[in-house]
């Protein structure tokens, strides 16, 4: 019992858990490279990332919502709705204005979510469940449950074609956005304040942060990202469909949580989400190359997710501490130097 406690409370173990995304990603890549020929080739990576891009955009929005301590189930429905606007309005407005309308649909839908949660004070789980049903139904109503096709199949190639022999357009958009999010969360005052709002909205408010504005903003941001995802997804296949993005939110939440963001709010990172997404992409690619049935893939993803949150809980159940590599090093040095000082003092006596 004592020994077990020591393992679970040791700094090394905390460090492992905190940096778990890197470890799991590395493990997945190694296993994938061992069993799948050509797994680490650039082409495979590029294809895998391309398929992940839409999911990744939704996950970017969810990262912010989860850090703010809320939940957003409506991303998939917003994605479908904005895709329908993007494609369905092409004939009337032209392609580029229609894409902007699609984006606007995402922003407006996010604002509706924000209104429900911040103004009407409905719990975000229930509020976004309701808006999810609403947006999805709206998508079916507008299209009469049929997919709509765009006017020019070549227009969308810009987002789905590799640019300069590297990644596809949408992968690059995703990378740029997640790096921007990382900078915003770590370098800006507003980003830091978002964490404060997520850990405790009331005390954040007491210290002069406008919590409700941040919560509202988080939902608008999430809706916008789902809108971007919808525009890109629909353009790349030249189709808008009311069934797009049916399961995307749950997978995106899984990716964000694998990346170390907590559903209770106040903790998380953009790079963690990136790691979570890469892990899921690598896992899916590896298992598909091995023709593992999709339900077995689901089991593997679910088990990893469950183990991670269980580990996370074991660690955060004990006291919180800083376990970045830099902090561990600092602590190791300070404890050694304090021991040395003690010894010298002892000698002087």
């Amino acid at each position: 019992m004592n020994a077990r406690r020591n393992i679970f409370t040791s700094d090394a173990f905390h460090g492992l858990v905190r940096n778990r995304v890197v470890i799991i990603l590395a493990a997945t890549l190694i296993i994938g490279a061992t069993f799948v020929p050509g797994f680490l080739e650039f082409r495979t990576a590029s294809l895998g990332l391309d398929r992940m891009a839409t999911l990744g955009l939704v996950a970017i929005g969810l990262t912010v919502v989860l850090i703010a301590g809320q939940l957003d189930l409506s991303g998939g429905a917003i994605l479908a709705l904005s895709g329908i606007a993007t494609i369905g309005l092409q004939a009337e407005l032209g392609q580029i204005p229609a894409a902007f309308v699609g984006l606007g649909v995402g922003i407006a839908a996010g604002a509706i979510n924000g209104f429900l949660v911040v103004v009407l004070r409905i719990n975000s789980l229930v509020a976004t469940l309701a808006s999810m049903l609403f947006f999805r139904a709206l998508a079916h109503l507008i299209t009469e449950s049929r997919p709509v096709s765009g006017i020019d199949p070549f227009f969308g190639l810009a987002v789905s074609r590799p640019i300069g022999g590297t990644f596809t357009g949408r992968t690059l958009i995703f990378f740029v956005l997640i790096i921007l999010l990382h900078l915003w969360l770590t370098r800006s005052v507003a980003g830091r304040q978002l964490f404060a709002v997520g850990s405790n909205p009331a005390s954040a408010e007491a210290s002069g942060i406008r919590s409700r504005a941040y919560l509202f903003g988080a939902f608008v941001f999430s809706g916008t990202m789902a809108g971007v995802a919808g525009v890109i997804q629909s353009l790349s296949v030249n189709t808008g469909s009311p069934v797009f993005g049916e399961n995307i939110v749950l997978i995106a939440i899984a990716a964000v949580v694998i990346g170390g963001t907590r559903l209770e709010g106040g903790r998380g990172s953009a790079l963690g989400t990136l790691g979570g997404l890469l892990t899921i992409a690598a896992l899916t690619t590896a298992m598909e190359y091995q023709s593992v049935p999709s339900y077995v893939q689901a089991i593997v993803t679910g088990v990893i997710l469950l183990l991670l949150i269980l580990l996370d809980r074991t660690v955060s159940g004990s006291q919180r501490r800083d376990v970045t590599l830099a902090a561990l090093w600092r602590r190791a040095r300070s404890s050694r130097s304090s021991r040395i000082t003690e010894r010298t003092l002892h000698h002087e006596k």
Partner: peptide, 13 residues
Amino acid sequence: TEPQGLVKGALIV
């Protein structure tokens, strides 16, 4: 069936 979600969503809210 599908558009009935409009009513359900509004009902929850």
